[in-house]
Simulated scan of single mutants.
Amino acid sequence: MINEVSTSQKAVAITFDDGPNPIYTPEVLDIFAKAEGKATFFMIGEQMERYPEIVKEVAEQGHEIGNHTFSHPKLSELSPADCLSEIERNEEIIQELTGQLPVVFRPPYLDYNNDTISILKDKGYPMIGALNMEAQDWEQPGVEHILSASKKCVRNGSILIFHDGFGDRSQTIQAVKKLVFELKSEGYQLLTVSELLNLD
């Protein structure tokens, strides 16, 4: 599980899970457009089928779309065949909507086992985690908690996790807005996960 990249460059990758969402994903796009940065969206296949236009918009704006499975199961509870199917169904949708195959993967709930690892190895996917798990933005713990817990994890090569899907994500949006502009003012580049991996 890759939570950060070793680099001397002032660069971080901010990621969003469980979208696309018709309210919050466009708000994230707006924040990153103003900051002239890029983000990575680990999207769920079922959501992409519901909101294909948002998927296309994300890709057109130069952000990365990562594989987050088709239906967001705990992969350690699936057979290897079902696990592979979850990953490949998601790939097909991303390729169909954007013309590109995803090249990074994040397991739902960051849950995996040895079967998952070998499937991802065969597929050539790096498994992407994050440093700021204590922010727990999915629990809606308050804007200040999300922001302060995430800022503690910022250094060259950090990967940060947030959510733009499932439930009310307004706290996340407010926290990310503040974080993004603070990082920009401190001279950090906002890169996609793939761009960050290439710095290693």
Score class of each variant (00 low, 15 high):
Tyr24Cys: 12
Tyr24Asn: 13
Thr25His: 10
Glu27His: 12
Val28Glu: 05
Val28Thr: 14
Leu29Asn: 06
Leu29Glu: 05
Asp30His: 14
Asp30Glu: 15
Asp30Phe: 08
Ile31Leu: 09
Phe32Asp: 04
Ala33Val: 09
Lys34Gln: 14
Lys34Pro: 03
Ala39Trp: 04
Thr40Gly: 03
Phe41Trp: 06
Phe42Leu: 10
Met43Ile: 09
Ile44Arg: 02
Ile44Glu: 07
Gly45Pro: 07
Glu46Thr: 14
Gln47Val: 09
Gln47Arg: 11
Met48Val: 12
Met48Pro: 01
Glu49Ala: 13
Tyr51Glu: 11
Tyr51Arg: 02
Pro52Met: 04
Pro52Leu: 02
Pro52Ile: 02
Glu53Met: 10
Glu53Asn: 14
Glu53Pro: 05
Ile54Trp: 00
Val55His: 00
Val55Glu: 00
Lys56His: 11
Glu57Gly: 03
Val58Ile: 15
Gln61Ser: 07
Gly62Leu: 01
Gly62Trp: 01
Glu64Ile: 02
Gly66Asp: 01
His68Met: 08
His68Ala: 12
His68Tyr: 11
Thr69Phe: 00
Phe70Gly: 01
Ser71Tyr: 07
His72Ile: 14
Pro73Cys: 11
Glu77Ala: 01
Glu77Trp: 00
Leu78Arg: 00
Pro80Trp: 05
Ala81Gln: 15
Cys83Thr: 10
Cys83Ala: 12
Leu84Gly: 04
Leu84Phe: 11
Leu84Thr: 09
Ser85Met: 13
Glu86Cys: 07
Glu86Gln: 15
Ile87Asp: 02
Arg89Leu: 14
Arg89Asp: 09
Asn90Trp: 04
Asn90Ser: 15
Glu91Cys: 09
Glu91Ile: 10
Glu92Phe: 07
Ile93Cys: 08
Ile93Asp: 03
Ile94Gly: 00
Ile94Gln: 00
Gln95Tyr: 09
Gln95His: 10
Gln95Phe: 10
Leu97Ala: 05
Leu97Lys: 11
Thr98His: 07
Leu101Trp: 09
Leu101Met: 12
Pro102His: 11
Pro102Gln: 10
Val103Ala: 03
Val103Gly: 01
Val104Cys: 04
Phe105Ile: 11
Phe105Asp: 06
Tyr109Asp: 12
Tyr109Ser: 11
Asp111Gln: 12
Asp111His: 10
